[in-house]
Design a binder for these strands. Structure first.
Lengths: 234, 234
DNA sequence: CGCTCTCTTGAGTATCCTCAAGACAAGTGG
DNA sequence: CCACTTGTCTTGAGGATACTCAAGAGAGCG
């Protein structure tokens, strides 16, 4: 944890402005203002929380990207999920004493964190809060199910193709160039592959003109063909 | 769906007796009795619901085992989760219009199902219900995370060993013999392997005396060694 | 007894990993 | 400004894990 060095940027978070609670409408402003919470900034590679640590906060990602990952006994990392701005993470505290995965930003990220007991207290008075978390959690579960299908039943090229298609949709679809925040290693850890396999697939697809890459951004040149690759099982 | 042929066994379900709501205490009996719900029995292989179908019910498994699975474009099944007695499944209706996976009993199973709109109505009056579902859902998510780690970062023998250890814990730990409800194919679909790979591992471990098998039951002879296999990454 | 279904076992192969060397970019210090 | 370092990425060669294909064994059932 690098909280100390972030103390300077630690300031109260206007919870009610946040997407999560915006859904609840204005009627709750007063209740929400009573909730303690703070904004924290992290640099890439710092640890927001580590697996096994006491789970006392729920996090809302305001800006940037955060990877959630688990580590095997032998030290291999598996990325569980990449959190994007506007999403919640760190539910564990609502059920368990400890986090069962680790959270690290991919690049500079600002989060808003709320103490679990404060949220519990709010939830007791305003049940809509828990309903909202329930809904988010179910969506997470559906997402996890989809990823289980990919890791369990798809080949390397299908996995990478699915990932790229999903990534270039959810992220800034304004420009056709999509910033690729993940390194080759991180993509590999997300898809259950090795860095070399990911690199080779990229190289091949670039040669074929399926994708282009510049700096930290990619572009899918032929979306239909990419979809074919994603569900080929040739 | 094979609801028609089960109409004979369709009877009102005493919701308040069910484990899910037992946690809520007696104070809710009256409220819970007002909820429409029914018990349905299914035989192995029948479909409780299929992916893509309108999601109008939440299910509580009273007895038996149910597999939840997704199917790839090319027809391969991936088992997402094996539901055991006392657990809930089919959350999708609370968020989506359709189920995004299919549910089929492994052997004869009895479920209690509640219409989503009825549950919503109950939840509006009794927020504890939604909190309970939220908690269950978070646990599901943690479980899914663990499985993502296994599918993404572990070898075949590690996956099977982890599975067997988990299976023989959660199930009837009374006798040292644990009924193995899953076929080789289903174990393969759960672990992202092929039937042959699973069979070969079983054969090898039986030769080594690590496990024994008779009828539909298994027994881990050396739990410590099995744990070593589960986290070897040799 | 023969049928079907699941499971086992073997042989060959494909996919993906490991190991290793080199390319490339960015940053550091002389 | 250039050598040098560092880290990420690329590319190749070889090999291991797990898959495919195929045949046979075993169990259950009519």
């Amino acid at each position: 944890m690098h909280l100390q060095q972030n103390n300077g940027q630690l300031k109260p978070c206007p919870v009610h402005e946040f997407a999560l609670f915006a859904e609840l409408g204005d009627a709750f402003s007063e209740a929400l203002k009573a909730v303690d919470s703070d904004i924290i900034e992290y640099n890439a590679g710092e640890t927001i929380y580590a697996a096994g640590v006491s789970a006392q906060h729920i996090y809302l990602l305001r800006e940037g990207y955060v990877k959630l990952f688990k580590t095997t006994f032998s030290g291999k990392d598996q990325i569980i999920r990449v959190v994007k701005a506007g999403e919640i993470f760190g539910f564990d505290g609502l059920v368990d004493i400890r986090y069962n995965h680790s959270a690290v930003p991919l690049k500079r990220a600002t989060v808003c964190r709320i103490a679990v007991d404060k949220l519990d207290a709010l939830g007791a008075r305003r049940p809509e809060v828990e309903r909202l978390i329930m809904v988010r959690c179910i969506k997470e579960l559906q997402h996890a199910d989809e990823r289980l299908l990919e890791l369990g039943a798809k080949r390397s090229d299908e996995r990478l193709a699915s990932f790229l298609l999903a990534w270039c949709n959810t992220t800034s679809s304004a420009s056709r160039w999509t910033p690729l925040v993940l390194s080759r290693l991180e993509i590999a850890q997300l898809l259950g592959l090795t860095i070399e396999t990911v690199s080779r697939l990229f190289a091949q697809w670039k040669r074929e003109g399926l994708v282009e890459e510049r700096q930290q951004a990619i572009q899918i040149m032929d979306r239909n063909k990419m979809k074919q690759v994603a569900d080929s099982q040739a």
